[in-house]
Amino acid sequence: MLLLDPFGTGDSAGSFHEARWEIWLADAGRGADWLAERWPGRPVSLWGLRLGALLACSLAATAPRRFARLLLWQPVVRGDQFVTQFLRLRVAAAMAAGEKESGQDLKARLAEGEILEVAGYELAPELVAGIEALRLEGLLAGLPGCRVDWLELSSPGSESALSPASRRVLESLPAEGGPEVTSQAVSGEPFWTIQEITLAPALLDATDALFA
């Protein structure tokens, strides 16, 4: 398994304000090339969490028959909604400081080319534009025959079910000529939103079972 820190994040080169969706996409493609060279003849699968799932689908869509299999953990289904939710971090921080900002004003400033700081990230308009254009539905529809395993977490104590937004995407996919999708909701906490390192054992077990 090869795990990438996208350009401008984690241990990778670059600053976050220089990050662009196209760079992340090209780098993910290079990662897949590297795996293919290292293990010739073995299929390469793509695995993504949240926005990473959109990245995996974007990469697969650039070469529809190259990747036999995708594993999506709680995929973001619409890039524009993801951006709205991310900008809310700044809206909420302003609220905490007794000030008022709105996501719409922030979007207008981005549209004018301004780099905005959101939760410590210097967010560039180009990256936002790249993410806003993404729709999981359209990307998946363009992957004929691809096996897609979609896993989501449901809060412990509630009924395990995919979110309404996810169900809508799955229902919209063509019955024929599209990907072959399996979907499953398992019990666990949304570990990517929690500061402390948190495990979702049921998610790991379900993933193990899919790739056994």
């Binding site: 709205t84 809310r88 971090l89 809206v91 909420a92 609220m95 905490a96 007794g98 709105s102 949304p190």
Partner: peptide, 26 residues
């Protein structure tokens, strides 16, 4: 403030509601 956003997003998903930015008030 980080928690506010997490809670709002969780409420939206749980109840199928949509919260406007200008409704995020103390």
């Amino acid at each position: 403030s980080m928690a506010v956003v997490t809670v709002v997003t969780a409420l939206e998903e749980r109840f199928g509601i949509y919260v406007e930015d200008d409704e995020i008030e103390a």
